[in-house]
C-alpha cells in the first residue's frame, strides 16, 4: 500500500487561539466603549413650597429631607414644607435635561462624574419673573444641593437635587 502524507497544509495550531483572543479583546473593548458612552446619573428633583404656619407640617414625600429642613436656615424662616412636584431624571453627560416645575423652569446637565462617586452638575433655574440661578456644583452621590428663592408673602421656593 502506498503511504500518503496529509493533503492538509501544516498550519500553526496557534492561529485559532489567536483568533479567539482577538475576538475576545474586541468584545471587551466594545463593552468598555459602551460603558464609557453610557455615563449617566440618576437624579431626584423635589420642588418644595415653604411657608410659615401655626403648626409644623412636612409632606410625607419629603421625609428624606426632614433632618435638613428642620435645621437653620430653613427652620428659622419656615415650618411648613409642601411638595409641589417631584421628578427623577437620568442625566446623560453634557446633555441639558429640562426639569418640569410648578413655579418657573429649570434644566440640569451632568458635566461629568468625578472619582466614580461624585457628580459635577450644572443647574439653571428661573422663577416666574425670569430671575435666574446658574450653578455648577460637585457633590457626592446621595448628597444634596438645595436652591432657595424667597417668594412674596414670606414664602420660599425650594428645589432639592440629589444624584446617584
Amino acid at each position: 500500500m502506498t503511504e500518503r502524507s496529509s493533503p492538509r497544509p501544516n498550519r500553526s495550531a496557534a492561529r485559532p487561539a489567536i483568533a479567539g483572543l482577538v475576538v475576545a479583546c474586541a468584545a471587551v473593548l466594545a463593552s468598555a466603549r459602551a460603558a464609557r458612552a453610557d455615563v449617566t446619573a440618576t437624579c431626584d428633583f423635589f420642588e418644595i413650597l415653604a411657608k410659615q404656619g401655626d403648626k409644623p407640617a412636612l409632606d410625607g414625600d419629603l421625609k428624606v429631607l426632614e433632618k435638613k429642613l428642620k435645621k437653620p436656615p430653613f427652620a428659622s424662616s419656615w415650618n411648613q414644607f409642601h411638595l409641589l412636584s417631584r421628578s427623577q431624571k437620568t442625566l446623560a453627560k453634557k446633555k441639558a435635561e429640562p426639569i418640569a416645575l410648578k413655579n418657573g423652569s429649570a434644566t440640569a446637565t451632568l458635566v461629568e462624574i468625578v472619582d466614580t462617586s461624585k457628580v459635577r452638575l450644572t443647574v439653571t433655574m428661573a422663577d416666574d419673573k425670569g430671575k435666574q440661578v446658574n450653578n455648577t456644583t460637585t457633590i457626592e452621590a446621595a448628597d444634596y444641593v438645595i436652591y432657595v428663592q424667597p417668594l412674596a408673602g414670606n414664602e420660599g421656593h425650594l428645589l432639592s437635587v440629589s444624584c446617584r
Binding site: 430671575k131 440661578v133 457633590i139 446621595a142 448628597d143 444641593v145 438645595i146
Partner: peptide, 17 residues
C-alpha cells in the same frame, strides 16, 4: 450654606433678589 447630618451633606444656595 453647608448642612451636615447623618444622611450626608447638603449645599444650600440661598438666592436673594
Amino acid at each position: 450654606i453647608n448642612l451636615d447630618d447623618d444622611d450626608g451633606h447638603a449645599a444650600v444656595i440661598w438666592v436673594t433678589p
